[in-house]
Simulated assay, not measured.
Amino acid sequence: MKKEEVILNMKKECLVAVVRAENKEQGEKIIDAIIAGGINFIEITMTVPGAVDIIKAMCEKYASNKDVVIGAGTVLDPETARAVILAGAQYVVSPGLNPATITLCNRYRIPMLPGVLSPTEAIQALELGCDVIKIFPGNLVGPSAISSFKGPLPQAEFMPSGGVDVPNVADWIKAGACAVGTGSSLTKGASKGDFAAVTAKAQEFVKAVAAARA
């Protein structure tokens, strides 16, 4: 999938599932449960043991499903970015802004979503060629941050991550977010081995987003 298609589909889907897990087996079960619930954009964080291997395995497993898009999160440097791209990641997300990582992703035409929390960082991200900018941690600023950023930067596209849950996802979307990232609230059931709860929560998110956009 080309870079433009990934970005277009991300905006269309509007939901990115952030996956953190204790091990590879749990991580793969969480991903399967999320996809079963209707969320197709999966962000596997580098804090998961064996994350690169999980990315490779999930890319292979869902290769025939063109709706599923596997990406990598918590990417802090260009070396890690290159590793996940080689494993098949179709987009890269970071909690911060690292110009060298963005440059590496641009070289291979992979969307890179850097984390920002100030207009200065957002402007830098735009100058470096980022199409979607991650607001992180979203729970520190709230949905009003989107309109505040878009005041001076109407051309920018923002995706909040951190603190996004079913009750407030509509607030983020109506504030102007082009997509939202959600993690702990989505995958909470996995800690007890209840992957059906993860699927159910994913379905709730899908319905909430559809309602907000309607």
Rank of each mutant, 00 (worst) to 15 (best):
E121H: 03
N139L: 11
G142V: 10
A83G: 06
I123D: 00
Q124K: 15
A51F: 00
A83T: 08
L113E: 02
E79F: 14
K134G: 13
T103C: 08
I110T: 15
S147G: 14
T101G: 01
P152W: 06
A122I: 05
V48G: 04
A122R: 04
L126K: 11
C59H: 03
I135P: 04
G142P: 11
C130P: 12
S118C: 14
S94A: 11
L104E: 13
V75F: 09
P119L: 09
R107K: 14
V92I: 15
E157P: 06
G115R: 06
G71L: 10
I70V: 15
V84L: 09
C105F: 02
A100F: 10
A125G: 12
L113W: 01
S118I: 04
V75K: 04
P137V: 09
Q90I: 11
A156V: 10
A100V: 04
P137Q: 10
T103K: 12
A145T: 13
V92Y: 02
S144Y: 07
S144H: 11
A145K: 11
Y108F: 15
P49H: 05
K61N: 00
G115N: 08
S94E: 03
R82D: 13
V84M: 08
L113S: 02
I146S: 10
I133A: 13
P95Y: 06
